[in-house]
């Protein structure tokens, strides 16, 4: 018989993802480096992915005619789309670096008003 606190359930996963989201949003808000902001975005994306898998497994695994896999399927797409988004974003950051020799978003103020 294990200790109840070691019995991993939905709550534990939700605690992890809430921490991840908080860390991600804090990173997005405080980082001035464009790459740093993208890392924060990845944290939020992964929090959502873990949420979906956890909810699917613990709360909504029983479908009408068999196991429901919507959350798991969604997560597979998130993994692919996160990679695609990172590729596009890094290409744009690289191009920005070529033009400005910096990836500091605070310096990106030539367009304003």
């Amino acid at each position: 018989m294990t200790h109840p606190a070691l019995d991993i359930g939905l709550t534990h996963y939700l605690l992890v993802t809430t921490t991840l989201v908080a860390a991600g949003i804090a990173t997005i808000l405080t980082k001035r480096n464009a790459i740093g902001i993208l890392i924060g975005v990845e944290l939020v994306l992964n929090a959502a992915a873990i949420n979906l898998v956890a909810y699917n497994h613990f709360a909504w695994s029983a479908g009408k005619g068999g196991p429901a896999i919507e959350g798991v399927m969604f997560t597979a797409f998130i993994i692919v789309l996160a990679a695609a988004e990172a590729a596009v974003a890094l290409a744009i950051v690289l191009n920005y670096y070529n033009n400005f020799s910096s990836v500091d978003v605070d310096q990106a103020d030539s367009l304003s008003g």
């Binding site: 991600g24 975005v41 939020v44 988004e85 974003a89 033009n99 367009l111």
Partner: peptide, 19 residues
């Protein structure tokens, strides 16, 4: 230069909001 700055802002705002 304006184009690359605009697209940087777009991709950062966009990826944050889609996340």
């Amino acid at each position: 230069r304006e184009g690359s700055e605009g697209s940087l802002k777009y991709v950062l705002f966009g990826s944050v909001s889609s996340a």
